[in-house]
Each structure stands twice: as C-alpha cells, then as structure tokens.
C-alpha cells in the first residue's frame, strides 16, 4: 500500500500535464454545456452603464492587453465593443500596450463589420503612444496633442466623428480592458477620479483580487477574466468563445481539486497505515 502511495506521490509531473491538457481539450471536442452561470453585479455594472447611454453618445474603450493575455481579455473586449455598436454609440478607442495594437484593430474591425459601422463616422482607433501616465493625462485635456494622427495615419481632427470631440471628459462612459500595468489603476488614478467620469473595467483573473477594492466607488463595474466575459456574452445575448470555454475551465478546476485532495490525503493515509 505504502509503495503504491509513494509512487503516486512521486509520479512524473509530465503525466499531470497530459491530464490537464486532456481535461481542457475534452470540452472543446465535446461541449458539455454545464449549467450554473450566474451574472454577477460587478459585470452587470458595466453592462447597465452602456445600456443606459443614449444613441450617439461617446464611449471610450482602451484595449490594454497583448497577445499573451488574448484568451482572457479578447472575448470581453469583443463583447463590450459589440454591445457599444448595437447601442449605436460612437467609440473612441486606443491602447496602452504597444503589442496589443493589432488585436485592438482586429476587434474593432470585426465588430464594426458585423454591425455595419464605418470607420471615422461610428468609431475611431487612435492607437498607441508612449508614456502611459502622460497619455492618460493628455487625453483628458486634448486628445489631438497626444494623438495628432490615428492608427491608420489620418489626421485625427479630420475624422467626422471627432468633429465636436476634444477630450475624454466628453465621454458618456469609459471602459478599460486590461491585462495589468499600465491599465485600470492608472485610468482610475489619473483619469476617472481626477476628471470625475464614470468608468468600468475588465481584467485578467490574476488581477481580480487586487482590482476589487475599486468597485463600486471608483468603478461602476468589473469584468473579471473569462468567467466575466462569459457573463457579458450572455447579457448581450451573443454567447461566444468565453461562454464555450467555461466547461473547460470548470473541468480543469475539478481536476486541480482532485489533485490537491490527493496530495493532502497521501501523507495522511501513509501515517495512518504505518
């Protein structure tokens, strides 16, 4: 008995990697549609604010993530953008992470094509500029000083949508969808708190415990990781990649729980059987 337990406790970790891959891959091949997704207040806090904006209002979206965190942030970014277009809001977007510029452009183009929106009239993508604190402070004063040209190289002042737009204080709502620093804390500190605008955010699972204290006083809502994205997708009635990924996450967590229980049980049983 003890020999078997010793072998189990010292199993080659590569077998565990295979088990984890199998647990995540299984629901992708054969979706399980596990029940139990409940929309939380913090996710609804972002949804309600966008839902309440009248058509034609300006909404700011900052895509502050890069390809390394794409599976966590991309689905929520797409869902929020789709929601904004469905409400006929004018999107003023930018990003604080240089390596995420292509992803932000991809999200906007995809959602705009779906909704039949035109660049320059319904949305603009200002792109990236260095020094995040200076950029955040700058866009709340005069966006044209920070972004004289948009990401496509157009003169930002010449875009029809920005005809009456001068800075981010004119936004009806602002959302930052970020994977870390610079991101939500910077937008809160140098933007929303200082210039008194309403904002919400989306973040990775790792950042969630650290960002919780901002809700509900400093931000109206927080979309945490893939679970939050799945909740948002269900709120806008467009289940997509995050919603489908919940089965995989649940199965993966179940496996980790079993492994944790085993790790703790083995020494206990060994002591008991001595």
């Amino acid at each position: 008995m003890n020999d078997f337990l010793d072998k189990l406790a010292n199993v080659d970790r590569r077998y565990l990697f295979l088990l984890v891959i199998a647990a995540i891959l299984f629901p992708i091949v054969r979706p399980l549609a596990l029940p139990g997704l409940k929309v939380t207040d913090s996710v609804k806090g972002v949804y309600d604010q966008i839902e309440a904006l009248p058509a034609g209002s300006y909404i700011g979206i900052s895509f502050d993530f890069d390809p390394a965190s794409k599976p966590e942030i991309y689905p929520m970014a797409l869902a929020v953008t789709r929601h904004a277009f469905r409400k006929n809001l004018k999107i003023v977007s930018m990003n604080l992470w240089i390596t995420g510029t292509g992803l932000a452009d991809e999200i906007l183009t995809l959602a705009a094509n779906e909704a039949g929106k035109k660049y320059g009239e319904d949305y603009v993508f200002l792109g990236w500029q260095p020094s995040p604190i200076a950029v955040i402070t700058g866009v709340f004063m005069d966006i044209y000083k920070v972004f004289p040209k948009d990401q496509k190289g157009n003169d930002a002042r010449s875009l029809p949508m920005l005809k009456d737009f001068r800075n981010f204080t004119q936004l009806g709502y602002f959302v930052t969808l970020g994977a870390g620093s610079p991101g939500l804390p910077h937008w809160v500190q140098f933007g929303a708190d200082k210039y008194k605008i309403k904002m919400g955010g989306g973040c990775t699972a790792v950042s969630e415990p650290g960002y919780r204290p901002y809700y509900p006083v400093q931000i109206t809502g927080l979309i945490p990781a893939m679970k939050g994205a799945a909740e948002y997708e269900s709120l806008i009635g467009m289940p997509d990649k995050a919603y489908a990924g919940l089965d995989a996450i649940s199965l993966g967590h179940f496996l980790i729980l079993i492994l944790l229980a085993l790790c703790n049980l083995i020494p206990f049983v060994k002591r008991f059987t001595k």
Binding site: I28, P71, A205, V206, G245, H253, I256
Partner: peptide, 15 residues
C-alpha cells in the same frame, strides 16, 4: 484566480 487565469490561457491555445 491564478489557476483560472492559466487555464483560460491554455484553453485559448488548445482551442
């Protein structure tokens, strides 16, 4: 939450 985050990343690549 870290485990959840890492699983989300793995899910993305496996998908």
């Amino acid at each position: 939450t870290t485990v959840m985050g890492r699983f989300s990343l793995l899910y993305g690549r496996l998908f």
